[in-house]
Design a protein around this nucleic acid. Sequence first.
RNA 1: GCGGGAGUAGCUCAGAUGGUAGAGCAUCAGCCUUCCAAGCUGAGGGUCGCGGGUUCGAAUCCCGUCUCCCGCUCCA
Length: 479
Amino acid sequence: MSDLLDKIVSLSKRRGFIFQSSEIYGGLGAVYDYGPLGVELKRNVQARWWQAMVYQHDNIEGLDAAILMHPTTWKASGHVDAFNDPMIDDRQSKKRYRADQLIEEHIARLRRQGQDEHADAVHRRFVEALHADDMPRALYEIIMDEQIRAPDSGAFDWTEVRQFNLMFETQLGALAEGNNTIYLRPETAQGIFVNFLNVLNTSRQQIPFGIAQIGKAFRNEIVARQFIFRMREFEQMEMQYFVRPGDQMEAYEAWREKRMQWHLDNGIRPSRLRWHRHDKLAHYADAAHDIQYEFPIGWQEIEGIHSRTDFDLRNHQAYSGKKMEYFDPQTRERYIPYVVETSVGLDRTILMLLCEAYREEEVEGDQRVVLKFHPQVAPIKAAVFPLVRKDGMPEIARAIEADLRTVFNVMYDEKGSIGKRYRRMDEAGTPFCITVDGDTLADGTVTVRDRDSLEQVRVSQDRLLPYLHDRMRAWTPAD
RNA sequence: GCGGGAGUAGCUCAGAUGGUAGAGCAUCAGCCUUCCAAGCUGAGGGUCGCGGGUUCGAAUCCCGUCUCCCGCUCCA
């Protein structure tokens, strides 16, 4: 891992942004907890997304669907088939096959060639393999021993057989008998699709309109690494935008622009963001772009904007028997809407903000570590200090703290030298420090110290709130 | 999943040849501080990832296991 990411991991733990899950028991792989500062950062990001998506658009409705869903949901979405089979990849063609189907085809081929004895032997071994403890391994050995080649490329260059059992299973009901297996959702989108009719019928929306949701999703990642970049339990902020078939590209382009702007508005430098177009489209999509950020580990996806046709609604219609059609009263058309999806990883956004904000700087010969968050996402908006712990300064500082607390998350600190307190707040990413000093007693002004420029401005106590609001609004990212 | 590396106080780390652990920073209490930390005094904090074994005795040796990191693979 890069030095920078190491430092961010260390700072995250040291200051209480992010902890590994269940650390006292040795940790749980690729699961993380948000600490006191981390949860503030996360809630601020959620709030900004909700504001930008739901409140700023009169045709977008919010939703909070449950994590547990009817199992048929995942049949309709394609996740059960795609995620639970023993898969093997042809390294040459990059095509993926179901290992069991390859063997079945091989057996059928042998029979066609009259090699029934051989076919029977393979078949017996195949049945045995399907019940083996290490089923993927057993299937792999058959493919190796029988030298089964890839149907398309004819190559014999296979990866291991892997079982893509990426959905977390759990039991519905207290009785562990019968077929009660359900899944923790691997994506939040299906919660939106299955509620499409509910929202349509209750919100008085007309197409085009969207449904937005923030929520947890779960995937048994094969390779889960790089801190909170790829986690087994993670949070998505998704919006599905329903449009008339044919109008999807216009909506797609509009949402691409809005979503990129959102990241810029969070203080991400434009040079660190780029578009990545999917050349190879999933079968249900007719366009797909990712927004990538230049992490210390390289360019990585943080958000996907996908035009996913009517695939999901059409499938839910087929599986549920419920008509997913929309009737347009103007044109008197009836159709299953197309969907443009924006899906951003909340945890990845947090990691991006940490990477973007982290700076090591030299101040008058000393080094400081500072998180230059956008003030709106900063966990603590302001800290209030008495310059010294006497002459009534703590009392005045406490009063200012109490006043600001009605609006912001603020912190009071009187421990250590004033410089030390500034540096502590730098590490937490607090944009403003307010110091009560001797002049405060005389004229009612305080020092407001800027995290980024280190500049100090004297502000009258009673103008403090509007002053801070103005400064937050005017903030722009450095370099 | 495979190969390699690592796991000692909250953080970063030191602990040659086995004799039951230290530093800096951080934290807490007090002092000193009238604007950018690392001044003073004191305190708390570790069964050295976990389990087992060898040994009179293990952080140090052996086995297992978990977690993290790097590379390959994967990114459905």
